[in-house]
């Protein structure tokens, strides 16, 4: 347990040193999306009886939870390939699951900060929604899933450049196709079927339903929970693999 906390604490100490820079960096993309898609392009668009900006904010929160949770992979890569601090963890009596959980929680913490930034940004533009348990539950599970995936991927890549490729091929397409910017119901059924395999599609739907105080379905939460558990197991396996 203390080793798990040590892994988490190290990431938090680094985050604390960079907090202002990090918060500013977390604000840039959502702000641009709000200005370009929310206000400029979507100013006159109405989705399911709500303004496009109201539709966009929960989706952006879900997307930010994904991107920022996954960004922990970059920190792990720096520790592994440049600082070689990862060797400290490997040489210490730290179990694989303690390491994965510590790094995953660090990813979730970053994600929660990013979600708070999006919520505050929404409030600044006059978007007031229901940020209750249904909303936070969805984004939290989504963060857990992508932080676990990030730890796993960070252990499997051979160079830092490979990590950037993974982000380009997995995270960026998901950000645009996972229901952040448009309702998936607008797509043909075959496309909806394919996109239903993306965890972000479920996170966007659950976060949006929660934020709009609509009746909650457990299915998206179940999918996100399943993804989080699967990715966590993958990450624990990958830590052992990293020794080779």
């Amino acid at each position: 347990m203390t080793s798990l906390l040590a892994v988490y604490l190290r990431e938090m100490l680094i985050l604390r040193r960079r907090l202002l820079r990090q918060l500013l960096a977390m604000s840039v993309s959502p702000l641009l999306y709000v200005l370009t898609f929310g206000l400029a392009l979507g100013g006159s668009v109405v989705v399911d009886g709500r303004s496009y900006l109201e539709f966009l904010i929960p989706g952006l929160a879900a997307m930010s939870s994904m991107t920022q949770a996954f960004a922990i992979a970059g920190e792990i890569n720096v520790a592994r390939f440049y600082l070689h601090v990862f060797e400290e963890f490997q040489a210490a009596p730290v179990s694989r699951w303690s390491f994965v959980l510590g790094e995953t929680l660090a990813g979730v913490t970053r994600a929660l900060l990013a979600i708070a930034v999006v919520v505050l940004l929404g409030l600044a533009f006059g978007v007031r929604l229901q940020y209750g348990l249904a909303f936070w539950g969805a984004v939290l599970l989504n963060s857990l899933a992508f932080a676990s995936l990030a730890v796993g991927m960070a252990m499997l890549v051979k160079t830092h450049a490979d990590q950037a490729l993974l982000t380009n091929f997995i995270i960026t397409p998901m950000a645009f196709l996972g229901g952040t910017f448009f309702p998936l119901e607008a797509l043909p059924s075959w496309a909806r079927t394919i996109l239903s395999f993306l965890p972000l599609s479920h996170a966007s739907k659950a976060a949006r339903d929660g934020a709009f105080a609509l009746p909650t379905s457990f299915f998206p939460y179940l999918c996100l929970f399943g993804a989080a558990v699967s990715f966590f197991i993958l990450a624990v396996w990958a830590v052992g693999k990293a020794r080779d």
């Binding site: 203390t2 080793s3 604490l9 190290r10 680094i14 600082l83 070689h84 601090v85 400290e88």
Partner: peptide, 26 residues
């Protein structure tokens, strides 16, 4: 273990580096 390369966290203080290490060992 003292590795061949300086595997320290440059952004943390000396005490913080040692503290994280000692926590890893419980």
């Amino acid at each position: 273990l003292t590795a061949q390369h300086a595997n320290l966290d440059g952004e943390l203080s000396v005490r913080e580096n040692l503290d994280v290490h000692c926590r890893l060992y419980g």
